[in-house]
Amino acid sequence: MRVAVIGAGIVGACIARSLAMTGVEVVVLDRGQVGSGTTSRGEGNILVSDKAPGPELDLALASRALWAELADDLGAAMLEFEPKGGLVVATSARGLDVLSGFSRAQREVGVRVSAVSPEEAVDLEPWLATDLPGGSFYDQDAQVQPVMAAVEILADAVRRGATFRAGAEVAGVRTGGRGQVVGIITASGDRVDVDAVVNATGTWGGVVGERLGAPIPVLPRRGFLLVTEPMPRRVEHKVYSADYVDNVAASTEGLETSCVVEGTQGGTILIGASRERVGFDQTMNPGIVRALAEQAVRIFPFLADVQLLRVYRGFRPYCPDHLPVIGPDPRVPGILHACGHEGAGIGLATATGALIASHLTGSGFVVDPGPYLPDRLIDGRTP
């Protein structure tokens, strides 16, 4: 079997490695370089803390275990993998009540989470504001450097026999007499014979799905990320306000901002996160930058005196029901999708790779594949 994976971001890299490990012949194609699209605009989150019980949390727990295995195989330093844990803090008494109920439900399905008092929160993060009412600590939350991780994972896939073609934009597919995929066509006119094609193009999953004759409703959701000047490390964990969970799950088109703060191995501090549905509009919005900065200072007051190094923005691949699309498309035999992860693509990439490999090879699934299948989003069945 020969499989084309379209997209050399973190999801495509994990798919290629999972397939190569089973002996499948894999060719990865990307119109750019490794990790140059959606992956390059991410924070590198590997989170279970922000997901309610259900299919996405199931996928996140499976992925977290696979990330640990991957770090052991390739070396944590090569991925900048840090099992740092996540501290979710409330900024009001009501927010703490909501967070406590959310955490309780997660605990019942296997998430490791503990309540923390205001004093315990400051013990975990000494530079934290001292007037916060408390929060929850998740020791399973982790972090990677997303582009480094994509490069290393794809390199390992290549060592196992995969090939990678940069600057190769896929324009369409070729099908046989029964409609089965037999190859792909690039924008330059090259033809590549394959038995299956995986659409792992992140935010552009809907556009590429159209080219493959299998459109899916993946939409862009713009987000901004602030990066501070390097400094001695002052934020040890992933730290975010409890309202981030509500914003992740929201479907509104308007702007939503909620504070997410974390340190990096290079000494910079990353500050997010905003979400808004504005298509592929890349316009800079100083108002969003200001709102994120103010929210970050509320949680970490020392940031008021820290300089921003840069601000960047990107697009999260958003599906209407907040679940990624993973699996074979019933309309075109040989087409599979692996996109629509929104802001969780880094964290969910490893289990996504395992699911796609199972669909193509018939091996056992790491989680029930049913909730993620494309069927739910086509033929007028979009939620």
Rank of each mutant, 00 (worst) to 15 (best):
T130W: 03
L348I: 08
G9T: 05
D190H: 10
T264H: 12
G287I: 05
Q106E: 12
T130I: 03
L219Y: 14
I46Q: 04
D30N: 06
Q145W: 13
Q106Y: 08
Q307G: 12
V181M: 12
G362C: 00
V113H: 01
V144P: 03
A149F: 09
F102E: 03
V170S: 09
V147Q: 07
V198C: 07
S274H: 04
E276L: 13
T203Y: 04
V11A: 07
R376C: 05
I269N: 01
Y318V: 00
G101W: 08
A16R: 03
A65E: 11
A13Y: 03
I378L: 13
G161R: 09
I185M: 08
V11R: 04
T130F: 03
V197M: 11
A196Y: 03
G266D: 15
T361H: 09
C319T: 15
D305W: 10
L225T: 13
S63R: 04
Q307Y: 11
A293F: 14
D123F: 10
G177E: 15
V34A: 03
M21E: 15
W127Y: 11
G370T: 15
P126K: 11
T264N: 13
D368M: 03
G263Y: 06
S358G: 12
R159V: 00
D72H: 10
G134V: 14
L154M: 07
L79I: 10
S258W: 07
T38A: 15
L70A: 11
Q180A: 14
